[in-house]
Design a binder for these strands. Structure first.
Length: 261
DNA sequence: TCCATTGTTGTGGG
DNA sequence: ACCCACAACAATGG
């Protein structure tokens, strides 16, 4: 799932392979129902270069001081990669920006939930979107206010992009697991100690995934990510991993390791 | 056939 | 007015 660390891996791919080259053209394949830049926006991009990238939560941006920017949302299955004149692209390489020298930036998205738009400025755009602070940028006090002040479940609060941008279903579960907090605990039931623990463990979860560039196979075996199956043994206490819908999403957690209230 | 995933949107309750 | 919960929607493969 492209959450903050996976989006960061895509941002890095853009940073490494798609900067400082003039945009020459576009290709698209099987793009029905996928929101992409239209003819006018493509004309705006053509002839410009991307010179910098930015990421906020699950949104990725590329552009330059004076030129247009692209804003990208990867939905649930998207990714960005660069190639030199690739052949044999899969069907889900839906949109391609072609730069000088045959370099290509490819927007993959098998499930087609997601989009790419052309915008003027990422910081203005973020400010107008009612997005919360990035989960790796937010400070401990603001985290405590936003998550601890939530009357709903702590899991719903972590997933709310207006409170905190970047955490999705997988890493919300991982953070709660590490913190020993049940997903159905209310934000307002968390004391300052447990909020502080959750803040620390959320950062540790995200940083751990960032450190392996979102290659899950490189994460330690005692992470919940490797045990997201009903009835699996909890790698930390020997309890049983349980599956339950919380806040409309599937939560996996260990009722023994994670306190209910 | 149903389920899983995401953000958005609309509705309704407190 | 605000906060929160829930359902529906989009595409697709398992």
């Amino acid at each position: 799932m492209p959450e903050l660390p996976e989006c960061e891996a895509s941002r890095k791919a853009v940073e490494a392979g798609a900067l400082n080259r003039t945009i020459e053209g576009f290709e698209e394949h099987n793009t029905i129902h996928l929101e992409l830049p239209g003819p006018q926006d493509r004309d705006r991009l053509k002839g410009h270069q991307f010179t910098e990238t930015h990421r906020h939560g699950k949104h990725i941006f590329a552009g330059s001081k004076s030129g247009p920017w692209i804003a990208v949302h990867l939905g649930m299955t998207g990714s960005l990669k660069t190639f030199d004149a690739p052949r044999d692209l899969p069907d889900y390489a839906h949109f391609i920006i072609r730069f000088e020298g045959d370099r290509r930036l490819i927007y993959y998205n098998p499930r087609k939930f997601g989009w790419m738009r052309v915008i003027d400025d990422p910081h203005d755009w973020i400010a107008n979107k009612d997005l919360g602070p990035d989960a790796m940028e937010i400070g401990d006090n603001m985290f405590a206010d936003r998550i601890g002040g939530s009357r709903g479940t702590v899991k719903s609060a972590l997933l709310d992009q207006k409170k905190l941008a970047g955490v999705g279903n997988l890493w919300a579960d991982e953070a709660l697991y590490r913190a020993g907090i049940g997903p159905e605990v209310k934000g307002t039931e968390l004391g300052s100690d447990r909020i502080a623990t959750l803040y620390k463990e959320m950062r540790a979860s995200l940083q751990g995934v960032l450190d392996v560039n979102a290659d899950y196979g490189k994460l330690p075996g005692d992470w919940l990510i490797h045990n997201r199956e009903e009835g699996a043994d909890c790698p930390r206490c020997g309890g049983t991993i349980t599956k339950k819908t919380v806040g409309g999403r599937t939560a996996y957690f260990c009722p023994d390791y994670q306190e209910a209230a």
